[in-house]
Amino acid sequence: MEPRPRSFWWLTAFFVVFLIFLYGPTLTIGILSFQGPEGGLTFPMRGVSTHWFHNLFEQQAVGDIWGSFRRSFVLGLMVMAATVVIAVMGGLAFRKRFLGSGAVFYLAIASLVIPSILVSLGVGLVFDRFGLKIHWMTSGFGAQLTWTLPFGLLVMFAVFNRFDASYEEAARDQGATPWQTFAHVVLPIILPSVIGVALFGFSLSYDEFARTLLTAGSYNTLPLEIFGMTTNVTKPVIYALGTLTTVFSFAMIGLFLAGVWLLERHRKGRAARKG
């Protein structure tokens, strides 16, 4: 192998610094969440304890954390399922030009670039005007979809831009119905990307703040609850919560990545057996 140019080492150093910049703060609050009971929001550590994690389980200390976590989790799953189905259907629709497809495409892009607070305000106003009660399962759910759907759609565009249509033709030539072609040929091929869309859908919903702010109604989602805490909690309990929810996010990412990895391995194994 040819030796690395000097620029490689400079860029490696830059990249490492960038990763520290990216992860350093999160690791810092991870450490500080084990602050002793007397400790504050910054170093030094005054002892090491799990005091602040215990605090999270006491209603009076932090409010309705677990309720909001449950709601965010359910909402995340709802948004994930809707995003996967609608984005895959949308991706399929755009494989062929149809009347008005350009307009639909620009609508999806608009959904991505319109400031979140406008969606929040607008959905809130619509529900108010029509005399509907805002609730995280209705208005919150819809408002979040305006953010996750365009992302899912862009991923599906990328997938179908690289999709080899001859597999489908082969299936069709052998008499497969359109549904059979989709279920047994197209879907297995795009499945890893679909899992990616699912991960995006869940995570973007689980952490979504601005679009949910005016559309969640009287029951908070977790990010709203956390934001409420920033204004009146000045103890490391907020770090403990931050650490827990970040660990949860990492676990979800790990779960999805493991899914993709197992799928690829299974597929390679099968290809190898077939020789």
């Binding site: 703060p25 999160t26 689980y206 956390i226 770090y239 931050g242 929810t245 970040t246 979800m252």
Partner: peptide, 12 residues
Amino acid sequence: LTSNIIRMISWI
């Protein structure tokens, strides 16, 4: 894919 608000808090 993690919370923006937590990432802001973590600068404190």
